[in-house]
């Protein structure tokens, strides 16, 4: 197998799982959203790595080049980036409301408060 083989993919996947780990285990609800962002950006890395063609250039057509990287994943990820920020914004708006309603954004503290009422 030629270097770097599947290395790009593997690291992207490790990054994804690190993001997911933060989402699952961090009790701070803002931090969870940070984890979510990392998870998503890692997926973007994975997609863009798929698009790369060895020796290719950016897919802007020009007579000087014949080999281009694949434009389609780029298109998809442009959309996905926007979806990602939309989700983040919504999550943070929710957190502002949660902070106002519960006085905290700590998952465990909120669970305790919910049990009380």
């Amino acid at each position: 197998m030629e270097f770097p083989g599947l290395y790009n993919y593997w690291i992207a996947m490790v990054l994804m799982m690190m993001g997911l780990y933060i989402v699952i285990t961090d009790p701070n609800m803002v931090k969870k959203i940070v984890g979510l962002s990392i998870f998503q950006v890692s997926v973007f890395v994975f997609y863009i790595s798929m698009a790369k063609v060895r020796g290719g250039t950016a897919p802007i057509l020009d007579d000087r080049f014949t080999v281009y990287s694949n434009p389609l994943p780029h298109v998809l990820i442009l959309t996905a980036i926007v979806v990602g920020i939309a989700t983040t914004a919504l999550a943070l708006a929710l957190l502002v409301r949660i902070q106002a309603a519960f006085g905290t954004v700590d998952e465990e503290a909120i669970k305790a408060l919910e049990r009380e009422t």
């Binding site: 959203i33 979510l36 999550a91 909120i110």
Partner: peptide
């Protein structure tokens, strides 16, 4: 609790 339910669902 609707807020936390929504957040949980979002994540």
């Amino acid at each position: 609790r609707a807020l936390t339910a929504a957040y949980q669902y979002l994540v």
